[in-house]
Design a protein around this nucleic acid. Sequence first.
DNA 1: GTCAGTTTGTTCTCACGTTCACAAACTCCT
DNA 2: AGGAGTTTGTGAACGTGAGAACAAACTGAC
Lengths: 260, 260
Amino acid sequence: METSRAHRPFRRLLETRALTARTPTTGGPDQGLPTGVTAVEVTPGRDIPEATVARLPIYLRALTSLAEAGTGTCSSEDLATAAGVNSAKLRKDLSYLGSYGTRGVGYDVDYLRYQIAREIGVTQDWPVIIVGIGNLGHALANYSGFRSRGFRVVALLDADPARHGSVVAGLPVRAFDELAQITTEQDVAIGVIATPAAAAQSVADAMVAAGITSVLNFAPTVLSVPDGVDVRKVDLSIELQILAFHEQRKAPLPAQEETA
Amino acid sequence: METSRAHRPFRRLLETRALTARTPTTGGPDQGLPTGVTAVEVTPGRDIPEATVARLPIYLRALTSLAEAGTGTCSSEDLATAAGVNSAKLRKDLSYLGSYGTRGVGYDVDYLRYQIAREIGVTQDWPVIIVGIGNLGHALANYSGFRSRGFRVVALLDADPARHGSVVAGLPVRAFDELAQITTEQDVAIGVIATPAAAAQSVADAMVAAGITSVLNFAPTVLSVPDGVDVRKVDLSIELQILAFHEQRKAPLPAQEETA
DNA sequence: GTCAGTTTGTTCTCACGTTCACAAACTCCT
DNA sequence: AGGAGTTTGTGAACGTGAGAACAAACTGAC
């Protein structure tokens, strides 16, 4: 993962090209650049900390929410409150992307929103494929948040022939062995695994073989994938167990504390 | 969160009581204690780092998996591989709980599994209530992993009267205003929010008022709750956006790198 | 009993992430 | 124009987490 992110001289130039394809809602791409400094020189965000990356989507959502409420400008304090974080942390996070605010004023909501979306890479839609159309796969396929936040579900696959042909969220459920073909044709880079744990590793292997390089895994199992492939895991019962741990520590006390 | 965890003198005594109620599969509770040291003196794990807490469920799952495969004893290396982490990190994590291994030998799978389950607090089932029985709520209600990992869904609630009475996963969908009654009667401490974002905050408020102190939130919104209430968030599109960020950084390169 | 081999538990060091605090830079009012 | 007030961006201090490395402690062979 680190190796694939190190020293990428052409990255920013490509992003600049993409930037001109879709113009931001307010302001031009050069807004905020000090005069006399070339665009190449000022390019920030070479290496954004992982913790910051994980928060950028939260800021993006908070900004969208502010924009829908009609807010044109916001301070770091406002945005931090909306995102549920500390304002100092927010400012530091944003500083990794560049200087998109104005001192004494704050941030232009639409402009900052575009900049974060561009940094994350969701100014255009990413095609996504979902494998495993059980209860969870159903829910994921129907989740409207994907579409509105930069993702487009292009295919649903399942190993069970009994499910083939049924239509879920407007898409037909197709056979698992169509994976490679679909992935190639539609240039899919992101795959979602919503199968039982037993099938997850072989699905992951097939995805990697088909050229998918980012996997979101809902199956409760550890996947092993080659370098260069990112895996993120969402595990429902692990989240509950973490809550249970803290719950256990606060639960028995109220009765006892009286006696102390 | 920190305030609620500080200085809990009675915690360990209560846990010791719980320990005698359910005896571990192998070995007694005192196994591994150096002679001549009182149980109170040696009690470890006063303050377990949050990062470690988040990994304990992973170790628990890996141990279950090993046990099912018939493994009686495993080294830190074995377990680390199964859990997908570094063995040094694993040993350090386990050392916060106590000395449950044997040098030169490794860990007894069943015994360690019990100790971790006890530390997390999943030796007995936690009652859980789910609010919002849409696509996702359906999937959660049907998820068998909860039951097998220390949780028992005791009620499904929804604000939509059209859904009331329908049976999901063997449970009837009930009216939202039954929340307080059910929570009190069944002593529910953990609530799951699977509603649309717009409803989430008011659901959270009602949960807190009903005495729930741990919330797992699937709605894409920031919840504000009083001190002493834990909230964990699972956000599907945020996970995808994080993947997209990394994907964007590796995608355009292969073609360019040839020319460099 | 002793010695070689193995594996845990822990210490030490380094990297990463968070928070504070403040200078720089902007707006607005007079 | 100048000064008061506001807010960003960042350097520095602090705390937490990760990983290497090793002593302590166990097993088993002879």
